[in-house]
Design a protein around this nucleic acid. Structure first.
Length: 298
RNA sequence: GCGUCGGUCGUAUAGCGGCAAUUACACGAGACUGUAAAUCUCGCGACCAUUGGUCUCCGGGGGUUCGAGUCCCUCCCGACGCA
C-alpha cells in the first residue's frame, strides 16, 4: 500500500494556503504538514510578492519548501522533486500526513507522479552556442539527434528545443517520460468562478501593495538581485522591477500585474483541468470535501 | 469662419485601385520531458464547409471605375493652426 497524501491545487488567490492549513488541523488522528509546491515561494525574500503564507497564518502547522533557495540562482523542477520526496519521507516517518499545496502544476506532477526526468545537467556552454542558432536550425538539429522527440516537441519553443538537444547529446535521445508513483494522492481543487476569482485577485493586490510589496522588491535589489533576474521571475516581480527602474508608471504597474495574474490563473487552469483525478470543490461545499477526505484517510 | 491633417474589426495602428483588410495590446482556446509566475501554439466580421465557399464590412450619403478603406463631390465628427 502506497502512503496517502493530500494535494491541494487551484489558481493563484483562490485560497489554497488557508485550505491546506485547515485540512492539516482538522483530523486529529492525522497531524498534517504542508509542503508548498510553488516555483517562486521556494526563494528566500520573495514573500509578499509571491503570496507566501506568513508564520501567523500557519497556525502552528509545519510548512516545508518555503525559503529553500537563493533567488539569484535558478531553482528547477528536478531540485523540487528531490527535496519534496525527502520531505514527504520525513513526514511519513513521523506518522504525519503530507499535504502538498501549490499552484505550479509541473512541480506537483513531478513530485506526486514521480516522473522520471532525464538526469542531464544543464550545460551553459552548449546552451550559449545553441542560442545563436535560429529556431529552424535548432529544430533540424533535434530531428537529426532524436526524430521521435522532434515529432512531439513544439518546433517554435526555443528553450524546449535547446533542452531536448542538450539531453539527446548526452543520452543519445530524449527518453520517453515515465512515471512510477510512490504515493496514493487525493487531489482537491478549489473551484471558483472567474468573476469571484478576479475580485479576490484585485483585493489581494491592493492589500499587498499596502503591506509593502514595492519595498520588498527594492530591498531584494539592494541585497544584490539584479533587475534583469527580477524581471525573469514574472508577474509581480517583473513589473515591480520595471517600476523601480522607472520604466513604467505606478498605474501601469497595478494594471499590468493584475491582468498578468488573471492570465496566469487561466494557464494554471488549463494545466489542472487536464488532470481528471482532481476533485473540484467550491468554497460553499466544504462539507462534502471534508467527508471525501475523511473516507479517503480511513 | 478659413486652412491643414485625420475618422479602419474592443483599443491603438498599417493600408495610397484587386482586401475580410497589417501589426500590437486586450480577449478566447490550448500545449507543456531540469527557467514552468517561465516558454510556446492556435483563433479573433457572420454563416456554411474537406481543399473551399457565400454574405456583410473601413464615419453618413452620392459619384468615377470591370473593380473603391484606397480617387472625386458633399455632409457629420475630432485634433491642430490662422482668425
Amino acid at each position: 500500500m502506497k502512503p496517502k497524501i493530500i494535494v491541494v491545487v487551484g489558481p493563484t488567490a483562490s485560497g489554497k494556503s488557508d485550505l491546506a492549513v485547515e485540512i492539516a488541523r482538522k483530523y486529529r488522528k492525522y497531524i498534517g504538514e504542508v509542503i508548498s509546491a510553488d516555483s517562486r515561494q521556494v526563494y528566500r525574500g520573495l514573500n509578499i510578492g509571491s503570496g507566501k503564507i506568513t508564520k501567523k497564518e500557519m497556525l502552528g502547522v509545519p510548512h516545508h519548501l518555503l525559503d529553500v533557495a537563493d533567488p539569484k540562482k535558478v531553482f528547477t523542477v528536478a531540485k523540487f522533486k528531490k527535496l519534496g520526496q525527502e520531505k514527504i519521507a520525513q513526514i511519513l516517518k513521523r506518522n504525519h500526513l503530507p499535504i502538498i499545496c501549490g499552484g505550479t502544476g509541473f512541480y506537483i506532477q513531478a513530485l506526486v507522479d514521480n516522473i522520471e526526468l532525464p538526469e542531464v545537467d544543464p550545460n551553459p556552454k552548449l546552451r550559449k552556442k545553441l542560442d545563436g542558432y535560429n529556431t529552424d536550425k535548432l529544430f533540424s538539429e533535434l530531428q537529426k539527434l532524436d526524430p521521435s522527440r522532434a515529432k512531439n516537441i513544439d518546433p517554435h519553443n526555443r528553450p524546449r528545443l535547446i533542452r531536448a538537444i542538450e539531453i539527446a547529446r548526452v543520452l543519445g535521445k530524449v527518453p520517453r517520460i515515465k512515471q512510477h508513483p510512490l504515493y496514493d494522492p487525493l487531489f482537491i481543487g478549489i473551484d471558483l468562478d472567474s468573476k469571484k476569482l478576479r475580485e479576490k485577485i484585485h483585493i489581494r493586490l491592493l492589500f499587498r501593495m499596502k503591506k509593502g510589496m514595492v519595498q520588498e522588491a527594492k530591498k531584494l535589489h539592494t541585497k544584490g538581485l539584479s533587475w534583469k533576474r527580477m524581471e525573469t521571475l514574472g508577474l509581480e516581480y517583473c513589473y515591480l522591477a520595471l517600476y523601480l527602474q522607472k520604466k513604467i508608471s505606478k498605474n501601469a504597474l497595478l494594471e499590468s500585474i493584475e491582468s498578468e495574474i488573471v492570465k496566469y490563473t487561466k494557464r494554471q487552469m488549463t494545466w489542472f483541468t487536464r488532470d481528471k483525478r482532481i476533485l473540484w470543490i467550491s468554497p460553499q461545499k466544504k462539507k462534502a470535501m471534508h467527508s471525501a477526505i475523511a473516507s479517503f484517510l480511513k
